[in-house]
Design a protein around this nucleic acid. Sequence first.
DNA 1: CTTGAAAGTAGTCAAGC
DNA 2: GCTTGACTACTTTCAAG
Lengths: 165, 165
Amino acid sequence: MSESPQFTTPAVLDDIDRDIIARLHENARISNVELASAVGLSPSSCLARVRSLRERGIIIRYTAEIDPRALGFSLQALVSVRIRPGARHLMGQISDELRQQPEVAQLFFLGGAEDFLIHVRVRDADHVRRFVLDNLSANPAVALTETNLVFEHHTALSAGLRTPL
Amino acid sequence: MSESPQFTTPAVLDDIDRDIIARLHENARISNVELASAVGLSPSSCLARVRSLRERGIIIRYTAEIDPRALGFSLQALVSVRIRPGARHLMGQISDELRQQPEVAQLFFLGGAEDFLIHVRVRDADHVRRFVLDNLSANPAVALTETNLVFEHHTALSAGLRTPL
DNA sequence: CTTGAAAGTAGTCAAGC
DNA sequence: GCTTGACTACTTTCAAG
């Protein structure tokens, strides 16, 4: 539950486990009896597997996906950031600070020219401008930033879950 | 349930609705009675609000967040794509095809120099190379691609705006 | 892994405030 | 909009095969 396994080697999962994972990924609120009958198990075995997947950290958490526009966050942007070469050791700290900002939805650490990419949700163009100024440009460790507006954002419902390996 | 409201104007939500959203975002499997007592409502009123949020599309879906490494997807990458100017009308079709690939976790439509950015989960470097070759470079509508490896990926758990998986 | 049973808990709906 | 109360369904745990 509180562990964070590294999965250097893929976890041992059989076809039923993969089926359970896929179905919970599509609908985290499916009832245990319905899930059990869908994957061909008894409710008790199914529940034991789900609990094991959760305890092993394979199921990280259950979450409701919220439309940000309903909360007044109508604009999304991707901000790529390059850190000054002499300030790379500050990346962990900068990342921690960024992740505490309510605008930050995702943070990617990258290889290549840019050091990281920030997915932000904001009210409007002025909001993203202020976010970049206050949280990035003002930091002397930041060499440069580039902001791209997001017109559409899609999250796939089955990334690698239906046809694993 | 099947509608996709645009929220050109933010939806009308009171503080209790926002509280419900935040708590379901943190734990989509919280029981209705526990949620009700947490936000100070009776179970029936709470359930009615949750159902309304779901029907209005404010709660998009409930999903289990899965650790991709457990399924053998140990590498992540961001692939930015530019479409040939004369082929922009094909972007919708290309997007639909991409979203059906099991490797695609997220798809961003962008303003600016690049047309979209793809977040992929793959087994290894060879897998991402083949993904780009087969799904992008082979398409004559694609002008150029750029692949960046992802060293770390964090999704923020803030204000009900996190993106699952 | 399964079934079956028991006890506790949660979801649903109707009636009314 | 809200609540209460009753009914139904689900979950959980157990023992036994």
